[in-house]
Design a protein around this nucleic acid. Structure first.
Lengths: 211, 211
DNA sequence: AGCTGTGAATGACTTCACAGCA
DNA sequence: TGCTGTGAAGTCATTCACAGCT
């Protein structure tokens, strides 16, 4: 389910506020979904709520982490140290969500050696070593579209099984390799599409890019 | 439909290659979807294919643009000139996809006045003026989570009807305002989730963040 | 009384399969 | 013969509604 990460995020906030318990309705409100859906989602991996009370925030967080495979941190590598790749590498919020960027590579000599957060941009030739050294299973493709398939091929070749692709291209990968695409222009176009439809009506329109 | 933008993107490439015509099967392959779905999607806004031949690339592109409301460029404003906001503002690929970033605002004095691409980061107080001057209908929220709701409120207050939110928060907006969320950690968590499931099996797993 | 867990109903989307036109 | 357009079937996700625990 693509909603579990949202619950996880919301619960992190609730835990930080010291909230001991939460009802499906409250959680639904905060996550922007329906209460019945929350209950159904959570009951998928065993039920941990108490009738008449709700769910224990900390307990639920533990279970969600287990379910999402966030019991330990996932090492990730970013291919491409342009504006977007740099922004991702510098983003500090990944750690508490279960991920750690262990390397950033690029082919541009001007970028190699540049520091980003606590890392240094490495040459793309080091990709294999970085992946092997850290046991990386998730790669992020943040290169121009023309280089994206190559980047994906290299990631797959050295054993990466999941790819987050920011390039506006459909990647061709072997069966068993997971790909998620984030195309910023597509997101804008979907908004524009609804904007166009919305001239004259006013229904509520809140959605999520899988998120 | 969330797939139209993908078709649009693929067709842009095909047109650049000088391809005069394309079959639903080819288009499906390139867009990473099923051929029947392509036909159904395209027949939604009237049928423009020729049986035995396929669709005219240029004609289809025109129709898609009309359908997506991309007949002219949409002016957008970016709130937040941090790493991500800057990366977005500097990204050159929006124009051909139908969007133009007409302003970037921030509250941090260190950032205000800094040049990004052909723009200069403005003070957040200028948001209203920028929106009014350019008739902005789409706003991008690229600020820390604690500031996201405020940013959204300001955008809505000056008439913006669609928001692309990169902050890991569920925004509360009035009915009739469209919101799309892109949470990078959520994308990674969904990949990790599949990764966890995939230990032992190997089904193909290619999906899209709404895109 | 309040809230969870879940079968049943609904609705949306996808795929199949094929009739029909070029 | 090749490929589109589309009804019908199938699948998956969401919502409803309520029984049952605390």
């Amino acid at each position: 389910m693509a909603r579990l990460p949202i619950y996880h995020r919301v619960l992190l906030e609730l835990e930080a506020e010291g909230r001991p318990t939460v009802s499906s309705e409250q959680l639904a409100e905060l996550a922007g979904v329906n209460a019945a859906m929350v209950r159904k989602d959570l009951s998928l991996f065993g039920s941990y709520g108490t009738r008449g009370v709700g769910y224990g925030v900390t307990q639920l967080l533990v279970d969600l982490r287990r379910e999402l495979g966030l019991t330990s941190s996932w090492p990730c590598v970013i291919v491409g140290a342009g504006n977007l790749g740099s922004a991702l590498a510098a983003f500090g919020g990944f750690r508490e969500r279960g991920f750690e960027v262990v390397g950033v590579v690029d082919v541009d000599p001007d970028r190699i050696g540049r520091p980003i957060a606590s890392l240094t941009v490495a040459h793309q030739n080091e990709l294999e070593r970085i992946v092997a050294d850290h046991g990386v299973l998730i790669g992020v493709v943040a290169v121009p579209p023309a280089a994206a398939q190559d980047a994906a091929n290299r990631l797959v070749a050295c054993g990466v099984r999941s790819i987050l692709n920011f390039a506006p291209t459909v990647l061709d990968v072997p069966d068993g390799v997971g790909v998620r695409n984030v195309d910023l222009a597509v997101e804008l176009q979907i908004l524009a599409f609804h904007e166009g439809r919305r001239s004259g009506t006013d229904e509520p329109v809140e959605e999520s890019a899988s998120a």
